[in-house]
Amino acid sequence: MSFGSPYFTLPDFTYHKPRTLRDALELLEKYGDDAKILAGGVGLIAFMKERLVSPSHVIDVKEIPELKRLEYRKGEGLIIGATITFSELESHQVVREKYRALYQAVKLASDSIIRNRATLVGNVCEAIPWVDGPPPLIAYGAEVEIRSLDRVRRVPVADFIKGPVEIDLEPREIVTSIHVPEVPDEAKSGFVKFNIGSEFALVNLAAYLSLNGKKKDVRLVYGAISPKPVRALEAEKILLAEGDMRTLITSAALKASEELEVISDVLASEDFRRHLIKVLTVKLLTELIGGG
């Protein structure tokens, strides 16, 4: 995942560039496990260089019109096609204004040159624990749309990512888009990240809060602390309770730092991550609720 490659060259494969989704699916049907989808290439090509994957067939989906969608429909939400890059999201007005957590995550992801090429769907499909795309999507309750020749299915991003580089996708399937539900006007969302220079987060956090509507809703999603992004369900409950919001935030932050399973790895120890969970939670929630 992050070993660096001893190799300069890529293994042999056959390159395909289907023009329609159907052609792409037929290729997948034919080659199955031996094929990989190429969009931005930022993940796949790096993985191939490290020989973490060596597909015999690479299917470039950049010319498929359906996958280039980036649409917002009032009342329905946002549809992000599989070839939509971080840069395209960054300059999309609705993303910037309405989907703040996603926007902030996108802005903080990697660097501006990589963002010109990297896609959000690719980011989700790589399922690397330390990246910024998945937490906000999970906070919004986004779903991935998956197609094969004979069916379409939708899976919440939270379930789609099963673990490090492990996703709920069959070899004959392709992720066509991500659907992010509509966000009510009174809802707020945001994203924070703690990293030491490097693009990879030690901890990141996406929060979605809808506290003034009929149905109160809180989602706190933490990335980089465990094999896959996780929600702090107990902390969320605290925020849904009645009481002085300031005290609730502190309690929720403490709760989150205790309730979650947290790992140690090359980037940070478990202890430091738990501490950061506390700090980031207080920081983000006061920003969102206090407007400060």
Partner: peptide, 19 residues
Amino acid sequence: CTVLLNGKLVKSCLVLAVE
């Protein structure tokens, strides 16, 4: 290895020539 590819900066080590 950054190049301008159709007017956008990209890192050419992660791009296939055939693409």
